[in-house]
């Protein structure tokens, strides 16, 4: 698994349970390489759990997550962290930490006790800050930034990690409309320019349809449907997955399906 292997994730019969509750029930799903996959579904459907299980933050009761043909359970912490990056939901860091100090953390899995910070680390740090447009903020403490800026800095940190796969758990939560678009455009840019495979959990169905190459609807711990936004955004499926009667129209600007929710059903 060295020089730019073809990364894609295969989730194979993954089951995850807490005592008395099955959170994921034999989920089988393929994450295509170099694409944006969006996990969507109602509250408690297991989409965040699935994302965290892909990154091995949860140990499955059964099933596997395969990175290419390697079971992620067999990888060391650092090796895994060099392949899959995760931007957690509501991540936190000290308010007086500077932008550069936070983005530097992304280099952690690339260093060892003996091999400390080197030119490659500096290159990745600078590229991540430049690519996300936060280089000019480098000495600013996080507490002095706007919510949108802070989210860009976190994305820069994950970018500096230089993983083929980037998972983002509801990255636009708590952001206003402009910053939501800003943040997701940035994610798409990571996908297009840096060739990263993206797995994204999104709450907003219309944002999901707009940014996804592959859309995954989840319900009750399982995959309800998986396909292109055009294939999935149907009145029937949305009623079945979200319990909402909706009208599906084509958005006039981007030609993507747009869901107009009418009433619960």
């Amino acid at each position: 698994m060295t020089a730019n292997p073809a990364p894609s994730i295969t989730i194979d019969g993954l089951t995850l349970a807490y005592p008395g509750k099955t959170v994921l029930d034999t989920v089988t799903l393929a994450i295509p390489r170099g694409k944006i996959t969006v996990l969507a579904g109602p509250n408690g459907c297991g989409k965040s759990t699935l994302l965290r299980a892909i990154r091995r933050l949860h140990r499955p009761a059964a099933g596997r997550v395969l990175l290419e043909d390697i079971d992620v359970a067999d990888l060391s912490e650092k090796a895994l962290a060099r392949h899959i990056g995760l931007l957690a939901q509501n991540p936190s860091a000290p308010e007086d930490m500077t932008v550069e100090e936070l983005v530097r953390l992304g280099r952690y899995p690339h260093q060892t006790m003996l091999q400390r910070w080197d030119a490659q680390d500096t290159r990745a740090l600078e590229a991540a800050m430049a690519g996300t447009g936060v280089a000019s903020l480098r000495d600013r403490p996080l507490g002095s930034l706007s919510g949108g800026q802070v989210q860009r800095v976190w994305i820069a940190m994950v970018l500096a990690q230089e993983t083929e796969i980037v998972c983002l758990d509801e990255p636009v939560n708590h952001l206003d409309l402009a910053h939501q678009l800003d943040c997701l455009d940035l994610v798409r840019q990571l996908n297009a320019e840096f060739g990263r495979t993206i797995v994204l959990v999104l709450h907003d169905l219309n944002l999901a349809a707009r940014y996804a190459d592959q859309l995954v609807f989840m319900r009750d711990g399982g995959v309800a449907a998986c396909g292109t936004p055009d294939a999935l955004m149907t009145q029937d499926l949305i009623a079945r997955v979200f319990n909402v009667d909706a009208m599906i129209i084509t958005d006039p600007a981007y030609g993507r399906p747009l869901c107009l929710p009418l009433r619960t059903c």
């Binding site: 962290a81 931007l87 991540p91």
Partner: peptide
Amino acid sequence: DDATAVSLG
């Protein structure tokens, strides 16, 4: 946070 630290390895 813990999730971030763990995912950094």
